[in-house]
Design a protein around this nucleic acid. Sequence first.
DNA 1: CAGTATCCGTTTTGATACTG
DNA 2: CAGTATCAAAACGGATACTG
Lengths: 104, 104
Amino acid sequence: MYAPIDIFWRTVKGKYKAKLLIYLNDRVIRYSQIRRKFSKASERILIKQLKELEKEGLIEKKVTGTKPPYKTEYKLSNYGKTICPIIKQMWFWGENHAQVFNSI
Amino acid sequence: MYAPIDIFWRTVKGKYKAKLLIYLNDRVIRYSQIRRKFSKASERILIKQLKELEKEGLIEKKVTGTKPPYKTEYKLSNYGKTICPIIKQMWFWGENHAQVFNSI
DNA sequence: CAGTATCCGTTTTGATACTG
DNA sequence: CAGTATCAAAACGGATACTG
């Protein structure tokens, strides 16, 4: 029903998802840190994309505390780690071909 | 001003662009053929995405004839060929992880 | 601290009739 | 044959006030 490329697409579609995956690669990070790093993103969208990544199993969330203030930590899952090499290649491609865009 | 990942993103963002690039890989194809292949896409969107790919130099178009009916042929440029390996990896990733989505 | 809820503007896509 | 034009619908993202 879906072409394989659609599977991939659906996974990383969203303004910040690819960057979030790279940012979470090999770290455990609290939400407030992510907020600071992605300060240009609106609260709503950042949470939305984190939730989607979590729902699809690419990242994992751990909440500490039973009443506020809570402490939440995000990290990449093993499944999420399988996608990072591809995102890095997307990154490298952009790096190598940036001049094409600057000239438009 | 743009992160490299945004460069890549901007290049293939669009519902059919990645598929178009793969489809045009190593072939010269007429517009009507593309239409048949992408029969689910609306005329407007298909043309729009072809135009954007052409504008950014990923594909090339050759028009034959001075009055209708015209004959146009599309093919991948050398520049476009540099991005196909990455799209294929996206494809493979989706193939290998499809079951995750089917289970949701 | 880590989110939700609400409202709103922009961007993307679709359907379809028409044209060089 | 290969598009363009027009209009409408849906998806996406942003700002910000509020809450467990």
